[in-house]
Amino acid sequence: MAKNIKTIPTSEYDEVVRVIQEYHCNGCHKGNTSLLAKAFHKDATMYGFTMTGELLGGPISNLYDYINQHRDAPKINTRIDIIGITPTTAS
């Protein structure tokens, strides 16, 4: 019989949320791609919708280019959902 064993402590979840809030959310709010880049692996892939409803996807550099073009987003709403955490990754 399989056991459901929690291998990642809650403190790790809290740290992932802190990093996302500090770098991703604040980076988007301020239009600061240097700050934003600290939240992502250099080879990350992203997908999301622009303010005009267009799907933007592909390499993370697409997000940086979009932020650099449109600058800060002080009215952006963010929501942090952690789907999974391993000892070396979070998604």
Rank of each mutant, 00 (worst) to 15 (best):
M1I: 11
M1C: 09
A2R: 10
A2P: 13
A2M: 08
K3M: 14
N4P: 07
N4M: 10
N4V: 06
N4F: 10
I5Q: 04
I5F: 00
I5E: 02
I5S: 02
K6H: 15
K6Q: 15
I8S: 01
T10K: 14
T10L: 12
S11Q: 13
S11K: 13
E12L: 09
E12G: 05
Y13S: 09
D14S: 11
E15W: 11
V16H: 02
V17D: 05
V17C: 11
R18M: 10
R18N: 12
R18K: 15
R18E: 12
V19C: 08
V19F: 06
V19T: 06
V19L: 13
V19S: 09
I20W: 09
I20V: 15
E22L: 15
E22H: 14
C25H: 13
C25I: 14
N26V: 11
N26Y: 08
G27W: 03
G27Q: 03
C28S: 10
C28W: 09
C28Y: 11
C28R: 14
H29L: 13
K30S: 09
K30V: 02
G31W: 05
G31D: 05
G31L: 01
N32M: 05
T33P: 02
T33N: 01
S34V: 10
L35F: 02
L35V: 02
L36E: 01
L36A: 04
L36K: 07
L36V: 08
A37I: 06
K38V: 03
K38D: 02
K38H: 03
A39F: 06
A39G: 10
F40P: 03
F40S: 03
H41V: 02
K42A: 06
K42F: 06
K42Y: 07
K42W: 05
K42H: 08
A44V: 00
T45N: 09
T45K: 11
M46W: 08
G48T: 05
F49C: 12
F49Q: 13
T50N: 05
M51Y: 12
M51I: 13
M51F: 12
M51S: 14
G53H: 03
G53K: 01
G53R: 02
E54A: 14
L56T: 04
G58W: 00
G58C: 00
P59I: 01
S61T: 07
S61R: 04
S61W: 01
N62F: 01
N62V: 00
N62P: 01
L63D: 04
L63G: 02
Y64N: 00
Y64V: 00
D65V: 06
D65H: 10
D65I: 06
Y66G: 00
Y66E: 00
I67C: 05
I67S: 04
I67L: 07
I67K: 03
N68Q: 06
N68S: 03
Q69L: 14
Q69I: 09
R71T: 14
D72T: 08
D72W: 06
D72R: 08
D72Q: 10
D72M: 08
A73W: 11
K75T: 12
K75D: 14
K75N: 13
I76E: 08
I76H: 07
N77G: 08
T78D: 11
T78A: 12
I80W: 01
I80A: 00
D81A: 08
I82R: 01
I83V: 08
I83E: 10
I85Y: 00
I85V: 05
T86Q: 07
T86H: 10
P87C: 07
T89F: 12
A90T: 02
S91W: 14
S91N: 15
S91P: 05
